[in-house]
Amino acid sequence: MIEIKNVTKRYGANLAVDDVTFTINEGEVLGFLGRNGAGKSTTMNIVTGYISASSGQVLVDGMDILEEPREAKRHIGYLPEQPPLYMDMTVEEYLRFVCDIKEIRRQSQKAHLEDIYELVRIQDVRRRLIKNLSKGYKQRVGLAQALVGNPDVIIMDEPTVGLDPRQIIEIRRLIRDLGKSHTVVLSSHILHEVSDVCDRVVIINRGKIVAQDSLENLTKGIGEGTRMMLRVVGAEKPVQRLLRELPGVSLAEPMGVKEPGSVDFMVESQPGSDVRRQLGNALIAGGYPILMLQPMAATLEDIFLQLTNESAKEE
C-alpha cells in the first residue's frame, strides 16, 4: 500500500531520519515505535507529504507523494500529534470544511459525516465549538477529520498522548475497529499500546529502523520463559550455590530480601531448557521451601530496550 524507500531527512548536521525503508501492507495495523525524538513524527510527516525528504521516495499505491500529490494524498488520512483543528469553528462546521478541501461532493457530505459521527461517537458535540471540547473529544474530532473521504490508509501520530485512562481505552477500541476496514499506522512510545492493537511493529531509534517484524517473532527472539524470579526460604549463599550447580541454569543472581527470612533470586536457564522441575525438586530436597516462582516472559519492553541499546552501542 505504502512503500517507503531509503528516506532520509537532514536537519543541519543532524539526521532526523536516516535511510529508512519499510512497507505498509494493505489491511494491516502497523505500530511505529520509538522513543521521543527517535524520528517518528518526521517520518510520518514525510509519508503524508507534509514535509519533503532530503532523499528517498514515498510511494502511495504506486504514486510518488511528491510527483502526484493530489492523487496520492487522497489515499491517506492523517491525524498529526496535535490534531489540526480550528478552535473557532463548531465540530460540524469544521468537518464540513474538511469535506470541502478533500473534495467530497456536497450531496454526499451529510450522509458521510453521519457515518463518521457515529464511528468516533461525537454526535452529541457536533454543534459545540471545538475550543470548548475536552482533550479526548478534540482527539476524536481530529480522528474524524482523518476519516473524511474514507481513505485507505489512516496514519496516526501518538493518538493517545495526553488522554486520561478511560479516553485511552476508548481511542484504542476505535483504532481496533478501524483496523478491521482500513490500513492503520500508529506511532507510539508506549509499548503495550502497540502490542494491544498492532499486527506488526517497526521500531525506530535515532532515525534508523532497528527492527520490523510481527509481534510474535519479535518476542520469540528473546528466549521466552528462560528467566524467572524465585523466592526461597534460607540463607543466600548456600541456596545460590545449589542453584548454580543445577544442570541447565546459566545464571542465579540474588536480588535481595523482600520478605523476612527469604531471599529473592533471578534465575536464567540456557535457551531451550526448562529447569523449573529440577529446580523445585532440588530446593525442596535441600530443605529450602519455595515461596514464589514466577517465569518472566520477555516483553516488548525488553526487546525495545535491547534493540535501542544495541544500536546505541554500535555508534
Partner: peptide, 14 residues
C-alpha cells in the same frame, strides 16, 4: 502555530 497547516498541506489541494 495551530498546526492546522498539517491538514491543509496533507489534503489534496495545491
Amino acid at each position: 502555530r495551530n498546526k492546522s497547516d498539517q491538514l491543509l498541506l496533507t489534503s489534496p489541494v495545491s
